[in-house]
Amino acid sequence: MKKNLLIGLATLSFVLVLTSCGKVPQTEIDAATAALDAAKTAQADAYLPEQFVALQDSLNAILATIETEKSKMFKNFGDAPAKLSGIAEQAQQIAGQVEAKKAEVKSQADTLMVQVKLLSTENSKLVIKAPKGKEGAAALDLIKTDIATADSTLSEASALIAKGDFIQALDKAKSANDISLKVNGELKGAIDKTK
């Protein structure tokens, strides 16, 4: 009787050990998923795409491992909880870095936009100084078109900044800068001819 009782206890302990290994780390899954969602909301996928995708892939891989492990009779989630916690931590770090990256891109766009604005103002002044005769002002209409194109591109960049799309805003500012520099060169060249 005593022997049977011991066997029973041993079996129960064994079962307990097995089931304790097989507990789904739901809290860690939820935390990692929420952290990655938060990073996405912070636009990590746009500003730090490589890091974000790497984390997303890691989370998907762990979730797949957990799901397949759940199919087994003796579940073993091993180091999945630790990995999930790591992902949650990294996702939080990335979300923090996104803000810095966004500020950096915005600052680049702002700086370039100020430069383009100055260049545009200079170009508008140069147009006045540019060679004129009886019909000179009309001839310079062609150059004014380029100035208008650069200005409207700059306005688009400002609108993108207001919408928080700093990457696109920076690209637009770069294009406006290209055109403004070209116009500046043309005007200075035309003015130099008259000196």
């Binding site: 004129k132 019909e135 001819k193 008259t194």
Partner: peptide, 9 residues
């Protein structure tokens, strides 16, 4: 002349 543009009538 020498203005670098076409400007006459």
């Amino acid at each position: 002349g020498g203005k670098g543009v076409d400007w006459t009538d």
